[in-house]
């Protein structure tokens, strides 16, 4: 794979920061959703379901934003340029994943403090909380990036992606929520189980995506 996937990721990062088409959408959507939740969810419940709501925000934002890495290549008609290059399709996919990870980390950096502040959440194990949500997001990015390549040619890609993604991401969604609630409450005995599930899920999805990438990338 070499470092070509990093070249692809860097190119996407430069393009994104010049156009700001995806990151601004993701951050704004996250903030608006946080505000909406803060209005609609009673404060009394915030502590008990806050982690779940936060994770929901990241899922919605991810559905919106992570496919853009490929969709933009299709819209600009540059995907063919990548396909023609002597770069293994797995490298292209890896580059898109790295780019989406960067978007995810930036979104987290903005949304997490705002959400925790708005809901006045008290987190017993904040570093563990941060670690779990980052790990969950990374697994989610892996899955969404892998699935996005399947829908980019579809006319209703934005609608199709969540439909095909949901059954696939269910393990990581439920495991992350479970682990996050443990980190919020401080009752972390047994947290290794959901963490292992998240990591295993990411590894399996990654392996399947890389093994099938060559087939998926050719018409």
């Amino acid at each position: 794979m070499g470092v070509k996937f990093l070249e692809i990721a860097w190119k996407d990062i430069v393009v994104e920061f010049r156009s700001k088409s995806t990151i601004s959408l993701m951050v704004l959507f996250s903030l608006v959703t946080s505000m909406l939740f803060s209005i609609t969810v009673p404060v009394a419940y915030a502590q008990s379901i806050g982690a779940s709501l936060l994770w929901l925000i990241f899922i919605f934002v991810g559905m919106l934003g992570y496919a853009r890495a490929f969709v933009r290549e299709v819209e600009l008609e540059t995907l063919d340029g990548l396909r023609l290059a002597p770069v293994h399709p797995a490298s292209i996919l890896a580059g898109k994943m790295v780019y989406n990870l960067v978007l995810m980390l930036l979104t987290e950096a903005v949304v997490l403090p705002v959400f925790i502040g708005v809901f006045n959440m008290s987190i017993a194990r904040p570093l563990l909380f941060l670690g779990i949500i980052t790990l969950g997001n990374a697994a989610f990015v892996t899955a969404m990036s892998s699935l996005a390549i399947l829908v980019i040619k579809s006319r209703s890609k934005e609608l199709l992606l969540p439909v095909i993604a949901f059954p696939v991401i269910f393990p990581v969604v439920s495991s992350t929520v479970f682990a996050l609630n443990m980190a919020v409450s401080g009752k972390v005995q047994g947290i290794e189980g959901p963490v292992k599930m998240i990591v295993s899920f990411a590894v399996i999805i990654l392996a399947i995506a890389f093994l099938t990438s060559e087939y998926v990338f050719t018409d």
Partner: peptide, 18 residues
Amino acid sequence: LRRSMGFVSHNPMLYDEL
């Protein structure tokens, strides 16, 4: 094989923001 081929089409395959 990919290194030995160059392809030009009516689609320039260029990134507008670069």
